[in-house]
């Protein structure tokens, strides 16, 4: 009797209170993502009709200028936005669940900055290397950033949300300073990646996507596989251990996924902040705290948000195009203030 009551009863604190709504809700979100992808291909320096977008995709004619624009510029750009958004949002969801820290985000905790610095340093030292080298540099930088923040955050007692965030802020400031120092030193490097360091989807062609997408896909699948374990560990380390969880193994697996996702995202589009901070909160507001649902919803919502922000970045100062990272900061900074004020347990 109580079994049925639980399935029928609506939970007032989340948007989709009934379990039976979760799968249809995800389908609707994916459909919305599809709409965003098309919209993202329509809007730009010159707007293109939806019918032309469809023709460019399915009846490609390389003599038509707009088809060329769609295939070589806008399609890679929206796909990169989708991949990066999903990666950063899921990385944030994993980090927030694992650390029970509402402020956890690969941007705030310095992981993106670590990856970005590693890429800039590589460009400076080796010059124009292969894409593989950049990706590897981004992964190493992300991992080094994560370890640094964790160790600094743990100094002198536990890693409280504020302590971790402060460690991340310090690392980000330091890494950004070093990155800027290199870029000022070296005009050539600056020209190559100035736009990239602000987080941008412009000029991402299929070769870069093909290079980084596998990392992110592995990270997303891994995140789904450990999603149930993340829910359990979000009750706290002691409780999770008491329930028979090998928390060390789960943490290592989760950290690996975060490095793949955040490192891959930075290699593809530069450091874009706040996606991983904002999206998991929205996902939990919609589906609750079961990470088997939080993670897929975060992936889809993150993809939607980054494509939307990129559309905004293209039209806000038309014909100038802003880096999408700057648009995200405009959305994310007020949200951060809201979280710091009302959601952080000290």
């Amino acid at each position: 009797m109580s079994v049925q009551a639980n399935q029928i009863a609506r939970n007032p604190t989340r948007l989709l209170g009934r379990r039976s709504l979760l799968l249809p809700g995800l389908a609707v979100s994916i459909a919305l993502l599809g709409v965003m992808l098309i919209l993202g291909m329509m809007v730009g320096a010159a707007d293109i009709e939806p019918a032309v977008v469809f023709d460019a995709l399915f009846h490609y004619d390389e003599t038509v200028f707009n088809h060329l624009i769609i295939q070589t510029v806008r399609l890679p750009q929206v796909l990169a936005g989708m991949i990066v958004g999903a990666a950063l949002a899921v990385a944030g969801a994993i980090m927030q669940g694992l650390t029970r820290n509402p402020l956890a985000d690969s941007g705030l905790l310095g992981i993106n900055a670590g990856a970005a610095f590693a890429v800039v340093l590589t460009v400076y030292l080796v010059g124009a290397a292969s894409l593989t080298v950049y990706s590897i540099a981004a992964l190493i930088g992300a991992a080094a950033g994560a370890v640094f923040v964790y160790v600094i955050g743990m100094l002198g007692g536990g890693a409280t949300p504020l302590r971790l965030t402060l460690a991340g802020v310090i690392l980000t400031a330091f890494m950004s300073a070093l990155t800027t120092a290199i870029l000022i030193q070296d005009q050539e490097t600056l020209e190559q990646i100035r736009f990239w360091t602000a987080g941008s989807l412009v000029g991402r062609d299929f070769s870069i996507i093909a290079q980084t997408a596998p990392l992110i896909v592995i990270g997303l699948i891994g995140a789904l596989l450990i999603s149930r374990q993340i829910t359990t560990i979000s009750l706290g380390d002691d409780v999770a251990k008491g329930l028979g969880q090998n928390t060390v193994a789960i943490k290592i697996a989760a950290a690996l996924m975060v490095v793949l996702l955040a490192g891959g995202a930075v290699a593809l589009a530069g450091p874009i902040g706040f996606v991983g901070l904002v999206i998991p909160h929205i996902a939990r507001f919609v589906v609750g705290v079961d990470y088997r649902w939080v993670i897929p919803y975060s992936a889809v919502f993150g993809a939607i948000l980054v494509i939307l922000a990129d559309i905004g970045a293209r039209i806000i100062m038309r014909p100038q195009v802003l880096p999408v990272g700057i648009m995200m900061a405009l959305v994310g900074a007020p949200f951060f203030i809201y979280l710091a004020r009302w959601k952080v347990r000290r």
């Binding site: 604190t13 706290g236 939990r284 609750g288």
Partner: peptide, 9 residues
């Protein structure tokens, strides 16, 4: 004194 994540039923 365990604490549940906010919103967990």
């Amino acid at each position: 004194g365990p604490t549940a994540p906010e919103g967990l039923t």
